[in-house]
Amino acid sequence: MSYAIRAEGLVRRFGETTALAGVDLGVRAGTVFGLLGPNGAGKTTAVRVLATLLRPDAGTATVAGYDVFRQAHQVRQVIGLTGQYASVDETLTGTENLLLIGRLLGYSRGDARARARQLLAEFHLSDAADRAAKTYSGGMRRRLDLAASLVGRPRVLFLDEPTTGLDPRSRTELWGIVRDLVGSGVTVLLTTQYLEEADQLADEIAVIDHGRVIAQGTSEELKAKVGGQALVVRPADPGDLAMVVGVLREVAGAEPELNQHTATVPVSGGDVLPAVVRRLEDADVTIAELALRGASLDEVFLSLTGHRAEDGTELAEVPA
């Protein structure tokens, strides 16, 4: 198996704060890797280290087989960086921004112009090509940002919270672009505080909190890890709820959670469901709803970190 990104024991401190407290990562070539965590978890620091912008205090990392520190120049030739902190020049037009990158990458004037035109068309920015980037909407600016990181046809792409602050439509659009890129063989490392985003895009997810990777795997694996399933029961008559709670407590061996007219209890074995059904039948309780469902990534996050992932709604209102 070949890894596009490997990191071992990355440590980075800023004064008293430890942003990375020994991070190990392995991203397989041609996949999307999601680095999931709340604000201040160390996601951006990890990306900055891997993109050669920041030296770690300890640890090693390679990108596309090149050492991030000793062969930084080679690494820069195969990566693209987009996100919170890598941005476009707002005073330049869309075309000029891409021309700038193309020329810096050694393209001839004509090639740089052709590449700029092609990317602007691909990202639906042709109409805005000659307008200053500061007049762009948040979604347009992110697309231009992403286009800028693709000028050199990178094999490894870092997306640092690419959809933070975007409206749902722009977000879905960006997801589509990322899927296309991966389809063309690019490896993507994506940081996000949106569980849904990691669930939607990432082949593999690392949950990061306080500078440490606290869990890693596919979203299915992570969900299973937390104990998997919950049994939800809603009696037809709300008056039977007390009885339902009693049965669930006894059979599942855990304290059920009450939510208006339903009772939910975590279950592990497969024999709980038939036992519950039998007992409720014996007690003459009519069941309106009975469901066994997998844990959501939200619950995974909660059980791993002990706190909920930051709610993104507040951020979404900030103009990007």
Binding site: M1, S2, A29, G30, Y66, H73, Q74, R103, L104, R155
Partner: peptide
């Protein structure tokens, strides 16, 4: 899957001063 550490084109090892001056001109532009 082939190893990704043998890419083409082969990345260069460093920037020559002359190329650096060209970068400077582009950034001044």
């Amino acid at each position: 899957m082939t190893t990704i550490s043998a890419p083409a084109p082969v990345p260069t090892r460093r920037v020559s001063p002359l190329v650096g001056i060209r970068h400077t001109m582009t950034l001044a532009w």
